[in-house]
Amino acid sequence: MDAATLGFSTQELLLRSSPVLYLPAGVLLCVGLLVVAGYHLMARTVCGRPEGCRAVRRACRLAVVPAVLLLVLGLLAGFEVIDAGPTGTPLLIGGALLLVVLARLLAVRAAGAPYPLTGERAALGIGVALIVLCSFWAAAGIAHRKGTADARWLAGHLTLRPAVVLDTTERLYLQWPGVEERALPDAGAGQRFRYRYRGVRLLAQAGDRMFLIPRDWTWEDGNVLVLPMDTAVRITFHPG
């Protein structure tokens, strides 16, 4: 048996064992799809009329003001001058870049010229790459916030996690408050399990590994026992 007692980040454990990590990326991709669809709809309908083209060009010039404001706020958040949370910086910077790229695309389209222009292809490529990077950055921040919220909630509702009676062939030396270790009596040659542990709960299961926590566990600095599911352990679950 190869068991390890580690100080895992609770948020990381919850994210690894939950599909919540994919939700922010999916939401951002859906937003990107709506932006692209809106751009093509505006380019075909509004820019198809002369008065519409003039209105689009004026709107694109005015879009510089909110784009600069978003960029400045994003940089201030990045240097921690203002507090924008874990997702504020990428959303502000990425939103500013996206607004500039879309405004430039619509302005050139309204003028009837192809885009990207020869001298702007490199800038467009870098801008798109930065927008994609900010999207992944924001998705990671949203997932981290979700993991933190789940960890805080779990710390106050540990009774909802299954209680575990753990029998092992080797002593684990768990010096955790509230965890009881007891040597099992020798019942003969067929008895392989020598130690029993009470006062632990199942945090999560990933593949062939279980993550066990003490019943007095806290999300900030609580211990986690990573235990393989093999013949060297025997697990009994019970409520409460």
Rank of each mutant, 00 (worst) to 15 (best):
L29G: 06
C30M: 15
G32F: 01
L33G: 15
L34Y: 14
L34V: 12
V36Q: 13
A37H: 08
Y39A: 09
Y39F: 15
H40N: 04
G48A: 15
R49G: 00
R54N: 06
R54V: 02
R58I: 14
R58W: 12
C60H: 01
R61C: 12
R61A: 15
L62D: 07
A63I: 07
V64L: 15
A67C: 04
A67K: 00
V68S: 09
L71W: 11
V72Y: 05
L73S: 03
L75N: 04
L75C: 13
L76E: 07
G78N: 05
F79E: 08
E80S: 13
E80T: 08
D83Y: 10
A84F: 03
G85F: 04
T89F: 09
T89N: 06
P90L: 00
L91P: 02
L92S: 05
I93T: 08
G94I: 00
L97G: 01
L98M: 14
L98P: 00
A103C: 04
A103F: 05
R104E: 13
A107Y: 10
A110D: 01
A111W: 09
P116I: 06
R121S: 02
A122E: 04
A123S: 13
G125P: 01
G125K: 01
I126E: 03
G127C: 05
G127F: 03
V128F: 13
L130M: 14
L130Y: 06
I131L: 07
